[in-house]
Amino acid sequence: MSEALAGTEAERAESIRMIRDSAAAVAPRGGDTRRVRALRFKDPGFDPAVLREMGALGWIGLRAPEAAGGAGLGMGEMCALAEELGAGLAPEPLIPSVLSATLLAAAEDRAALPRLLAGETYMPTAWQERPDTLEVPGSPDAPRRFIPQAAGAGGFLLPVREGGRIALYVLDAAGADLAIERTQDGGNYGTLRPALGEARRVADDVGAVLARALDEAALATAAYLLGVMERSFDLALNYLRTRQQFGRVIGSFQALQHRAADLRIQLGLTRASVESAAAALDAGAEGAVRRAAVSRAKARAAEASLLVTRQVIQLHGGIGYTDEYDAGLYLRKAMVLANQFGSAALHRRRFMKDAPEGAEE
């Protein structure tokens, strides 16, 4: 390995470490979940002040180029950050904000982008028209569904198909036809009926940028789920080390040790998939190679997070089923995010279509 390459890798590792450390200010690992519980099942479902703090830390612009006011960092950094936020169950919609920042940066929009990057407004991209898809029909009048934390949105980005291109519009939330539905984790989804007559057109064609940004959002969500399952597993290990039955800590029972070992394997496989996909994207993977890498990671994270968080509930026994105990918060979060930006089934199908010959999930 050349000294230059070694230096670059060392700098990258330090950058990722600093990203992880900075996340502790917002979502400390092992910290209490009182803030998360206080925000559940209330509008807007997150703390706008924390979203502004994320903007001040440069997280919303993490993937946007420096020329547009962003940080221009890679998916390695983005996934490390998402993992830490998942471990802390941060409800703030960082991943949808990063997606929108990528689109507005490509559109070179100087009106909405600065406020979005600063976290002063939440402006999700309303792209999805049906369940479980990563396709963007861009129908001008079709309702846009499953918009994360839409109750706190100050505006929306609307991709609209015009001929063979995907144009981008900005729609203010004031007066928008928006319906809100609660989610299992205490957040919300929105269904928006677009009114293009009231929207501002900001780009002629963002189709390629949007496809890449959706893949990056799917991978970041996989990393968030990795954080969720890691912290959930930590809770189970702590419980196994302290809970006693028949005069012995239950972690000494061989059957529970085997179950914990199986869950640790799931964590290791998921981490390998996420980190491999992030490295591939940072190395410039495009097209089918990019899609296959992302789909392998998202399919793995979606299934493993549900498996781990459900098993953690069982390892805790009766107390795990109570809402007052934190283990259930992680299961609820996994249930909501497992299908966001594509379910495991969708990503398995896409992986089989796009993976290089001979590749295995």
Rank of each mutant, 00 (worst) to 15 (best):
V274A: 05
M352A: 14
A288K: 11
E14C: 12
K298S: 00
M335C: 12
R264S: 14
R332W: 08
N188K: 04
S305R: 09
R243C: 13
R161H: 03
A80Y: 05
A80C: 10
E129R: 08
R200D: 06
G70K: 09
R259V: 07
A255N: 15
E198Y: 03
A68M: 05
M123R: 12
R52F: 10
F233R: 14
P131S: 06
P48E: 12
A71N: 04
Q254D: 07
A283G: 01
L192S: 02
R201I: 09
V170A: 11
G74D: 08
L117N: 07
T270S: 09
N188I: 00
R248L: 14
D234S: 13
L196C: 15
Y321V: 11
L81R: 03
I313C: 06
K353P: 01
L307Q: 12
P137R: 07
N188P: 01
A153Y: 10
A355T: 07
I250Y: 00
V36M: 01
L99R: 10
I319S: 15
A107C: 02
A176V: 02
V170I: 09
L192W: 10
V249L: 02
I265A: 14
R35P: 14
L157V: 04
Y330E: 05
Y224S: 12
D262Y: 10
F253K: 10
G163Q: 02
T183L: 13
